[in-house]
């Protein structure tokens, strides 16, 4: 149709060189997996804000390049469609995380405060700010609405007793990305002594409780479906 726009191609190669450890396509695949895992996991997973930032940067660069293209070029339409698809994944991913943060803000903030320096990030900076603001809002709302009208000794809210917690014992569907032997499934009830050991076979699908799987989801051994 039109002669290839040189600046367009050069730029694209540049962006690939910048990402030494990961190509854009790999980052996108990782983000998609993170999105699905986050979607199906009952609990908030580790923050993947580096992937989100990386993809947003890619999108911005692409939009920059598109501005240089001639009008009516077929590429514009196609790249736009792809950008829209990626944007959808990113916003769906972030929305799902915010939902969970709203739901379990006390629990999540508590866990974040226990996090050690070199543990993986649970919340991105923005998410942490959001969680704190939200927690403050809810707190002051409770206070002004009910707590101040109660006798002195009822005015405290006990986090352990009142805060909703994610149900990590709910069942999830999962697919094994590689063989993993000897996954220990603890008994569901404390008085049930029979712990079970399961071998996961690559590409097989299972339905199990989320709790024993959480570390496997984090290191990518299994994907939730």
């Amino acid at each position: 149709m039109s002669t290839p726009d040189e600046s367009y191609e050069e730029q694209d190669e540049d962006s690939e060189e910048e990402e030494v450890e990961m190509t854009a396509a790999e980052a996108l695949a990782k983000l998609e997996e993170a999105w699905l895992n986050e979607k199906f996991a009952p609990d908030l997973l580790e923050s993947k804000s580096d992937l989100v930032d990386c993809m947003l940067e890619q999108i911005n660069q692409m939009e920059e390049n598109l501005r240089k293209c001639k009008k009516g070029d077929m590429r514009i339409l196609i790249h736009r469609m792809e950008i829209d698809r990626i944007r959808f994944i990113i916003s769906s991913y972030l929305r799902r995380r915010l939902e969970k943060i709203e739901m379990f803000h006390q629990e999540i903030l508590h866990r974040d405060s226990l996090r050690k320096e070199d543990d993986p990030l649970l919340l991105s900076e923005e998410e942490l700010r959001f969680a704190k603001d939200y927690a403050d809002g809810v707190q002051s709302h409770f206070k002004s609405l009910v707590l101040t009208h109660l006798p002195q000794n009822f005015q405290k809210l006990d986090r352990e007793k009142t805060a909703p917690k994610p149900d990590v014992d709910s069942y999830v569907f999962l697919k094994a990305n590689r063989d993993q032997d000897q996954v220990l499934i603890e008994p569901e009830l404390d008085d049930d002594p029979s712990a079970e050991v399961v071998d996961l076979v690559k590409d097989s699908q299972y339905i199990m409780r989320f709790r024993p799987l959480a570390p496997l989801v984090a290191d990518g051994t299994v994907s939730l479906i």
Partner: peptide, 10 residues
Amino acid sequence: FSHNKFYLIS
């Protein structure tokens, strides 16, 4: 139609 490669992000 004919067209050069598309360099999509994916």
